[in-house]
Every structure is written in C-alpha cells, then in structure tokens.
Amino acid sequence: MATALRRLGRRMAVPFFRVREFSASTSVLQNEQSGKSMNLYTAINHALHIALETDPRAYVFGEDVGFGGVFRCTTGLADRFGKSRVFNTPLCEQGIVGFGIGLAAMGNRAIAEIQFADYIFPAFDQIVNEAAKFRYRSGNQFNCGGLTVRAPYGAVGHGGHYHSQSPEAFFCHVPGIKVVIPRSPKQAKGLLLSCIRDPNPIVFFEPKWLYRLAVEEVPEDDYMLPLSEAEVIREGSDITLVGWGAQLSVMEQACVDADKDGISCELIDLKTLIPWDKETVEASVKKTGRLLISHEAPVTGGFGAEISASIVERCFLRLEAPVARVCGLDTPFPLVFEPFYMPTKNKILDAIKATVNY
C-alpha cells in the first residue's frame, strides 16, 4: 500500500503539459549548422533522437518513457524507433538500472531514465556497487561503460521533499562513474550525447526547473561537448563563483547586481562534477583570491565542500578570504518554505559582498 501511494503521489506531483510533438520531418540529423530556438526538454529530446538514429545498439527505457514521460523528454521516440528500442519498465528503479547494466555489459548503449532523481535511491546499490565497480572487478575484461542514467533533479517550485532533491554528492563519492549536470539547452544536448557515447557509466542529472524556462539557440546537427571541462561563462577579477545546473542562472543574476557595486565576478560552470576540472577553478581563484560555491543540495556534505577543500589545498597562500558556500539548508526540502531553503540571488549577493570585504 505504501508503495502504491508513493507511485500515485509521484504521478500527481508534476502537472502534465501540452507540448508540440517532435516531427520526423524536422530531422536533427540533417547536419545543419544553423541553430533553432529550443527549451531544455526539447534539446534532451533531440539528443535522444540522434543517439537512437546513429547507433542501432542504443535503447531508451524507464517508467512511462513510451508515451513521452512526465516531462515529455522522450516524446516521439517510440513511434519513430519502435517499442523494442524505447519501452516502459516496471515501477522498480533497482530493476531499471540493473537491466541497464546488463544491457550495457553486452555492448549496447543503455539510456535509463529515473523519473525523478529523488527516486534514484532504490537503485543506489546497483549504481555504486555494480555499475561503478564493473570494470574494476574484472581488470577491464568486461565493463558496462555504455550505461547512462538520466534523472530530473532539483527544485521545481512546488515539488516538496519527494520531488525536489539534489542528490549529486552521493554519487560524486563513488569512483568508477561520472556525474554530469547541464545548465542550458545547448549544453544539455551536447553533454548528453557525450555521456551516451562515453566508455564509462554516467549519471546525468537534468535540472527540471529549466525544462521549459531555459530557451536558447541550439544546433540541430549532431554535436558533442567535452566532459570534465569547466567553462568560464563570465570573466572577472574580484571573486570566483562556481556552480552547476539551474543554479548558474541565479548566480549570474547576483553577478550582474554585484557589478553595480563595483565588484567584478568571474562565473564558472563546472558541468562535470566527477571528474571535475580543478585546474580551471584553481587558475581563476589564483587570479581573484576569493571563491564562492553555490548549489541547491544541503550544505553539509554537499559537493561544494569538496571543491572548497581542494582549492584551499591548492591556493591557500593566494586566498584573501575564507571560501564561501551558499547552499540549501540541512533540512528535508520544504514545500511552503521553499523560498527560505533555496540559495537565492540575494543570499549569493550578500555572500559576495561579505567575501570581498573580508
């Protein structure tokens, strides 16, 4: 009964949206260099179409992916590629990932969807004890490198404590898997294709808050973006800000407001959390002398703590102030009190000023 209620709650937590179906006549495989305005979920959909079209070994599976999924990221896939390659699974996350490990071990590209990142925990054992160790336990005689686990993560504005969590730090502790989080539609498409084609198992977290809010020009052709390379998306001289996913847009707003007070902020999108690009962050902090990290997950044990420790080790004599962290609170994710929980623009702006004036 408890399981049935959890499933029902999951189905009702996020409203369904009326969206335009993917048209086969608008092929993403025409190798056009021109961009097209897309939101983030459409960019994910394009990437999945390309992955299935270019590799007959690729399969997409998960709860409700056959009709498009809760967020419609898999819309049109089953109609175009057939139900033998795009199919629904039982409501069992451990089974979804376990099946994906076996499929990948046979040389296929297994693209598994966990409907919400909050429900990835039943599959935790499969990911950290099986997928992450598969290659190591055989001395590279066999592996499941073709596994990509997609999961919408983070705040959505009304999700409460079962549909808003950011569990990335749990998986960053595990050698053998990669963790990737995009910030925008263009990044999402290129990074997802890189993940699917990477020879390592990867957990790909998609910021659900941005599925329909983030819109930009996205190339319609097949392209990949490099993993484990951070991007400096805003140059500055007074303080370095590091983040990932939906938090980047909040941090950028804080940087704009900081400019008005004469504070020059350098903003870095980490993109890949494991293995992360320490060199880019280190070079920036050595230039600015200050570092602020922001993420939605709780502050204690969050991945920001790992970044802070690493940069203190590497840049101790160049730091002008303690490393600042603006993160979620050490509580379950709230519903009506979500604005108090979230690392907002004003919280980040206050931390910027306090760090620069230290």
Rank of each mutant, 00 (worst) to 15 (best):
A24T: 09
T26S: 11
T26G: 06
S27T: 14
S27I: 13
L29F: 13
Q30S: 14
N31T: 13
N31L: 07
Q33C: 05
Q33E: 08
S34K: 15
G35D: 15
G35M: 09
K36L: 06
S37I: 06
M38W: 03
M38D: 02
L40W: 00
L40N: 00
Y41M: 10
I44L: 10
I44H: 01
H46E: 15
L48Q: 02
H49S: 05
H49A: 11
H49G: 06
I50F: 01
A51R: 05
A51Y: 05
A51I: 12
L52C: 07
E53Q: 13
T54R: 12
T54I: 07
T54A: 11
D55C: 11
D55E: 08
R57D: 12
A58W: 03
F61N: 01
G62R: 02
E63M: 06
E63S: 01
G66A: 15
G68E: 08
G69E: 00
G69F: 02
V70E: 01
R72T: 04
R72N: 03
C73Q: 01
T74E: 04
T75F: 15
T75P: 00
G76C: 13
G76T: 06
L77F: 09
A78S: 15
R80Q: 15
F81V: 03
K83T: 09
K83I: 01
S84A: 11
V86Y: 02
V86R: 00
F87E: 07
F87K: 01
N88V: 04
N88L: 13
P90F: 10
L91G: 00
L91W: 05
Q94A: 12
G95N: 10
V97A: 03
V97P: 00
G98Q: 14
G98V: 05
G100A: 09
G102M: 09
L103V: 13
A104Q: 13
A104T: 07
M106Y: 15
G107V: 12
R109E: 05
R109Y: 10
I111S: 02
I111F: 07
A112N: 11
E113N: 09
I114F: 03
I114C: 09
Q115H: 03
Q115W: 00
Y119F: 15
A123T: 06
A123G: 04
A123I: 10
F124W: 10
D125S: 09
Q126Y: 02
Q126E: 05
I127C: 02
N129M: 11
E130V: 08
A131M: 11
K133W: 04
Y136A: 13
S138G: 04
N140L: 04
N140T: 10
N140C: 07
Q141H: 14
F142Y: 12
N143W: 02
G145P: 04
G146C: 11
L147A: 10
T148Q: 08
V149G: 03
R150T: 03
R150A: 10
